[in-house]
Amino acid sequence: MNLKTFLALMRRDTLVALRDITSFMVRTLVQPMFLLFIFGNVMMRMSLVTGGFKEILVPGVTALTMLFAGMQAVTLPLVLDLGYTKEIEDRVLSPIGVHFIAVEKIVMGTAHSIVSGLLVLPLAKVMLHGGVSLNLHQWELTIALAILIGLVSSSLGLTIGSYIKPEKVGLMFSLIVAPIIFFGCTYYPWEALYRIPWMKRLVLINPLVYMAEGLRAAITPAVPHMPLHWILVGLTVSLILFTWVGLAGFYRRVID
């Protein structure tokens, strides 16, 4: 790999991201803010949900936010670049292996994802009725999981971005994004699905499940969660799969 080229690509994406920082913050924070407010504050005061729900909700919403930040950072620019503006051609012609251009996208997406996670946690403290108690003692685990979640999110973004055509972006939200959110154990813990056995097994194909459960294991360990080793297996398998499929898809789109 040509390190100078790789760093220049990262510098370009960092500059573009910093110029777009306001829109990034809005895109990243508005949805979790409302989710936390309605589920963790309004419904809490209505006594529609009980006190322990906040500890289920916060890791779930954080995982969801990280997933979308990582995905969006890669998918949206890529769909436009590959399908319409062809802006990426100049980078494809830089003296570096074509795959590394996609790897750089994954690295930048991971950074977006981690930053969004760091923004959501303090937001949760503020938005929730009566605050929330988060365990920050397992910081090594939390950092490792955050990196892994970021990598899975952005490699999923690469996979989607490499295969989807610009005119199908709307469809992507209905067919990919919505099922990921609702079958991702965002608002309920995976263990509690024992009442619906088929669903408990089915959701295992959803990478968000391992992200949400992973954060539960790290920052709200008192909530029943999936055993940590299965979480790590789930995230690692997702990462390998999406990176592999995404890199292959990217190569196919830029080289005929």
Partner: peptide, 17 residues
């Protein structure tokens, strides 16, 4: 499009080290 005119040139050169 995310870069200005001059940056299109300087970044291209940066990609080439």
């Amino acid at each position: 499009h995310s870069l200005k005119v001059r940056e299109n040139l300087t970044f291209h050169a940066a990609y080439f080290g």
